[in-house]
Design a protein around this nucleic acid. Structure first.
Lengths: 239, 239
DNA sequence: ATAATACACGAACATGTGTCCTATGTCAAG
DNA sequence: CTTGACATAGGACACATGTTCGTGTATTAT
């Protein structure tokens, strides 16, 4: 185990991720023991030990002696967590229609930066409204967000300039899935097919005119979400 | 106490208000006893009784045997600006939800009858619901209908097998527009780009692997509608 | 009047859950 | 080697919390 790592250790990160995800999935906090299970730790005291550290570092806060009272102060996935939080208020109050926040523009071709911070704010007026009946039933509303596509590198994947893509938050992806990834180095977000190879990750634009992006450091990219739906408004020549 | 009140009783409202407010204030759910205090009820069983009703009415959901696991499904809080704002949003959204009849599947080889008379009836269960905000404002709702695409002749036009296309009824089309046409001879309906040439009409599948269909007798085809929107549900490898 | 039903109280119960104490192992510094 | 800080485990303990059962009291229907 890594010792003395300043900032968050691996365990801390796992816990924060678990906390964030658990709360999004269930709407309430996990218990100490549930957290322990998630990081394969049997003893409750050790979990408590970590939680105290996280509280010390202002990553969470909790009420003494109150079950499941952990609040995530600095979501480990800052943008996405905040968004889903906002979404929960609108989305869950409605059964048929779902307002999905349109976070911004994603450049599918030559990637142009969407600073991650941009993902943090979401103005309800810019949301995309979707009928729940169109979504696979298993989709959790709170995990969804929308982006508008610019660029044409995904043309062969049936995604065009101007399309609106609905994504589900995810931190991982299987080979061949279409994902939105944040490239840390370039500080930009792009839409690509995801392939994990031996030591690298290949981000493949479906359009063969564009070269794939090869990432050798897994930490240099963060998967923001998987594409679950594409909406395209076809312009008609004459109204 | 009001009895037999259909819908939410006074107690129910108080509980929902308390739940909403408590969660906003604390970030987690109150316990049964805390709820009891808020409505001056001493017995936990009575609170449980009400909670069961609220759960029955889909106002909340909770996990069995898990503390503080209440989720508010329909926030009840007419006073707060925030909530009323959200509700207004929801209300407006509902009005804007449009049910578009899904007439059937479009596919080479399978004829789809789309006489105007057929548009009159449609079963709401088979309809596709679209938020009005997604449609160009000028679209007349009554002119719209939906088809599910089978086959891949339009792949390069960003339309894939399984996609749902929304069309507007039309008898004519301008060059380059994407239309659904009924080929009288073949007795089938297909989706193609429309080009009128000197004496013929060319129906161009965007996918170059497929040859265009040349129709020399204008009466041999009937334009059923223009494509105004494409909705694609992307399957994810692992749910 | 009687039965049925909805509403209400309280207490007992089982268990979920946070807290805390002790013990052990590991590693770097003295 | 010793020491001490850190990491880890196990478990006892108290109490927080959801569940359930028994009982009582109105209101309504038969």
């Amino acid at each position: 185990m890594a010792r003395r790592s300043e900032g968050l250790s691996d365990r801390h990160k796992k816990i924060m991720t678990f906390l964030t995800k658990f709360q999004e999935d269930n709407g309430y906090s996990p218990s100490i023991r549930e957290i322990g299970d998630s990081i394969a730790v049997k003893s409750t005291s050790l979990v408590d030990y970590y939680l105290n550290q996280l509280e010390e570092m202002k990553f969470i806060s909790r009420e003494g002696r109150v079950s499941r009272s952990i609040r995530v102060l600095k979501p480990y996935l800052p943008a996405t967590a905040k968004v889903s939080n906002a979404l929960r208020q609108v989305g869950r109050s409605l059964e048929d229609l779902i307002a999905i926040p349109r976070l911004g523009v994603i450049q599918a071709g030559q990637p142009i930066p969407i600073p991650a911070s941009d993902l943090a704010y979401f103005d309800s007026e810019s949301g995309v409204e979707i009928a729940r009946s169109l979504l696979p039933s298993r989709e959790k509303v709170s995990d969804l967000f929308a982006l508008e596509v610019q660029g044409d590198s995904m043309i062969d994947a049936s995604i065009n300039d101007g399309d609106i893509v609905i994504l589900r938050q995810a931190q991982e992806a299987a080979n061949g899935e279409m994902v939105a990834v944040w490239l840390v180095d370039r500080d930009e977000t792009t839409l690509k097919y995801f392939y994990r190879e031996q030591d690298t990750i290949r981000l493949q634009p479906a359009n063969p005119q564009y070269a794939p992006i090869i990432v050798d450091n897994p930490k240099a990219l963060r998967i923001m979400g998987k594409v679950v739906m594409v909406i395209r408004q076809v312009p008609t020549v004459a109204g």
